[in-house]
Amino acid sequence: MTEEAMDKPSDGVGCGAAVLMDIRNVSLRFGGVKALRDVSFDIREGEIRAIIGPNGAGKSSMLNVINGFYHPQEGEIWFRGKRRPPMKPHTIARHGIARTFQNIALFRGMSTLDNIMTGRITRMGLGLLSHAIWWGWAEREEVQHRERVERIIDFLEIQPIRKTPVGRLPYGLQKRVELGRALAAEPTLLLLDEPMAGMNVEEKEDLSRFILDVNDEFGTTIALIEHDMGVVMDLSDRVVVMDYGRKIADGSPQEVRNNQDVIDAYLGVPH
């Protein structure tokens, strides 16, 4: 595929919209392992941007760079038109980036409700002092946050498990709770690392619907890693394809599907 074709915007929601995040020439190494090599792409406001690629391609590493778990040796991240200095993950969360994890990372000892409530921390702070000084005020605020969380619980159709400790939930529901926790932050950019992995067809359809709804109703920009090509085709506006730490293609789902490099990468043709 030519450069021109790769940069051509697709006909999706993100088309023509402003760039929310611009990743420029990012390289990340772990000792000798080059997890990311000079990767550049952008994420536009309101789009669903898929990141695909074979195992070990560097997809999760990319998300970890975006949310600050990893700090790339080279490259720049531009967010909302400004170059972002190196930041701690919890600060980045406060700037409106929420995520889920490839291996579910819930607070296992807590209930569904409490897990999703933690998602509101970026919105309500920890209030150690306000709690100590004026209990009533803190409580009123708590009630408001609680209402938001209840709405998310309704939206994700998980009312029956509100009080259940998440460690006891089946895998599919845990993934849903994790999505709920990320949504509770009302993020500008939502990062989902293989949200459908290990789900059956029905669960995948449910989750796809939720993701589309979040994108439509709240206008949340989503970057999504996914292996199921059917899901990627259905959900995403544009797709980045990675292999061995490099970006090998970028474009609409149709474009990348017919791209020879992508086909080779997935069939394991030697480089």
Binding site: N67, F69, K88, P89, H90, A93, R94, A98, R99, F101, A105, L106, F107, T118, G119, I121, T122, L126, R181, A185
Partner: peptide
Amino acid sequence: QAALSVGIS
């Protein structure tokens, strides 16, 4: 990790 991701320092 999860705690960091929801903004807890």
